[in-house]
Design a protein around this nucleic acid. Structure first.
Ligand SMILES: [Zn+2]
Length: 204
DNA sequence: CGTGTTTGACCGGCGC
DNA sequence: GCGCCGGTCAAACACG
């Protein structure tokens, strides 16, 4: 009957729609990531330039007003990278496709945070034992905190890398506060580079 | 049948 | 030593 075929088609359309939604979400994530990297780069450059000017200024004359002394940036050895990415409820805690294949191997309820934390491991290469933790922020439920640990010893496959082409990244207006911090060891104070340059509210 | 997710068990570190 | 807590394992299950 035509009705059945119709239903089947409808189902398929729904499926494709879901896939599209997923891709859009993924694209958004990558967009955010890119933006974050850009911001980080800009901030770091600004800091470096500021530091240089500062040094020059100090070299000439010591002013009365003291300048803030920041921690040396070279101290941070990015053994594990923490990335705060704002996302919708689309990808609750599932496999976040950020270019790699992740296999979930655990989930725990962490104290002082009602949301569970998911543990992932890279399963693209047999020798790649990169781990990743994903959990929601305690304050904003719409913020996922992904903590990458380790380095990939394999390049990204081209099939998945083709999604990174973004026509308009800064005109979508989906940007919000983003923070990126790198902590070398578990015991380090985990310096947080607040990169909330775009001081816009993130009502979600 | 191969692969990935779920989910409770298990284990080590740490504080009491 | 014991129990809490964060992290991992692995058996069972689901899916293509
Ligand atoms: Zn990898």
């Amino acid at each position: 009957m035509d009705v059945q075929r119709n239903v089947s088609n409808k189902d398929k359309i729904q499926e494709i729609g879901a896939e599209l939604e997923r891709l859009v979400s993924e694209n958004k994530e990558l967009c955010l990531l890119l933006h974050m990297m850009n911001d980080k780069y800009t901030t770091l450059r600004a800091h470096v330039e500021k530091k240089r000017e500062e040094m020059n200024s100090v070299n000439q004359s010591c002013s009365s007003h003291n300048l803030i002394h920041r921690q040396p940036i070279e101290k941070i050895k990015s053994k594990s990278t923490r990335i705060l990415v704002r996302t919708k409820e689309d990808n609750t805690s599932l496999v976040v496709k950020d270019g790699y294949h992740w296999r979930k191997y655990g989930q725990k309820i962490i104290k002082d945070n009602p949301s569970p934390r998911a543990y992932f491991r890279c399963s693209m290469a047999p020798k790649c034992h990169v781990k990743k933790k994903v959990q929601r922020s305690a304050d904003d439920k719409s913020v996922l905190v992904a903590t990458y640990q380790g380095e990939h010893n394999h390049p990204l496959p081209g099939e998945l890398a083709g999604v990174t082409s973004l026509p308009n990244v800064s005109s979508t207006g989906l940007m919000s506060e983003l923070s990126c911090s790198t902590s070398g060891d578990r015991s380090l104070p985990a310096v947080n580079l607040d990169l909330t340059l775009c001081g816009s509210n993130h009502e979600g």
